[in-house]
Design a protein around this nucleic acid. Structure first.
Lengths: 179, 179
DNA sequence: GAAGATTGAGTGTTCAATCTTT
DNA sequence: AAAGATTGAACACTCAATCTTC
């Protein structure tokens, strides 16, 4: 006679990732599950939130990269940054920046001028329409974020923010600059 | 006469993101900076870690998507999953799965067979070479992770993992399934 | 020669349309 | 019809090569 045990519900908050970790720990008991679990949850949280935000923005016909560019310019002194500065803010390659700028320019959100002090550089300026658009989007994004996190205790959110800052200050040093 | 104040060094651990938050709070004092900061730090952590891991793997001529597929199959019962199951594990579209499988098949890591019980389905099996490759990669990835997180106190890492799990259990419900 | 931006080739994704099997 | 996998077009990225300006 054999008995089959069906765990009605795994303990507390065990999620799908706990099962995956369990597998690897079974394969190699010496494995450090803490760092591996953190990596997986970080990645998954990021993907889910990004997907949710993308859906949210799709209703307004906005892409993530568009927001990223518009917001960076919105924060810039004089609503203006060089293409290189935008590159460093967003962390994408120079080729990507060129493409993004062309598309933003077509929509009339930004203007491109050559810097007269150093004619190698391109100065990108947010137009009035672009500024209006940015203001509109920041509200949408903020609301969406608030809604997404509404199920988590405020205390947890604040602790997460603080701990992630600690993580960032640690790994930012080792890695090539970006923003 | 004007006085220019150069802040020698912002307080404690204020990172670049704090400056961005400061800007928006200045624009709108009612703004909830907690959720916004969390979003930004989550995204940035994820990007930085992913970039670091990608560099690490490049030395072994591996891509992230390759690892993702190999590991999912490595954990599967009988080292085998249907294409649809892989789709749900990885969260990419069916078209992407088809492409990935073709490339993995060319390298000889996996084999594709039609399921005889339901000939619509494709059963993907990890070959011996694929299994060896997966074992090799899990070691590389684990070492890289340990090194990346080495600058952060263990206590913080564990708390981060726990809090992220709480976040995931909250947002996973609202969002369309994936894995 | 080096720095900044642009171009083009190669890569990998999504999305919609299609084909096969149920 | 519906489900599962494949195909091809569109898109956005990286990387390396190029052009202009310093």
């Amino acid at each position: 006679v054999s008995v089959v045990v069906i765990h009605s519900q795994p303990d507390q908050d065990a999620d799908r990732i706990d099962e995956v970790l369990e597998f690897w720990r079974n394969e190699n008991p010496d494995l450090d599950v803490t760092t591996k679990g953190l990596s997986m949850r970080l990645r998954r949280s990021c993907r889910l939130l990004e997907r949710a935000m993308r859906q949210e923005l799709a209703t307004m016909d906005v892409e993530m990269w568009e927001m990223e560019m518009l917001f960076s310019l919105r924060r810039a002194p004089g609503l203006q940054r060089s293409a290189g500065a935008l590159l460093r803010e967003t962390g994408v390659t120079s080729g990507a920046i060129t493409n993004r700028l062309s598309r933003l320019e077509e929509h009339g959100w930004v203007r491109r001028d050559t810097d007269l002090t150093d004619r190698r550089q391109v100065l990108v300026t947010l137009t009035d329409a672009g500024r209006a658009r940015a203001n509109e989007l920041i509200a949408v994004k903020t609301n969406a974020e608030a809604r997404l996190y509404s199920g988590v205790p405020r205390e947890t959110l604040e602790r997460l923010g603080a701990d992630l800052r600690a993580l960032l200050t640690s790994i930012d040093q080792d890695l090539p600059g970006e923003y």
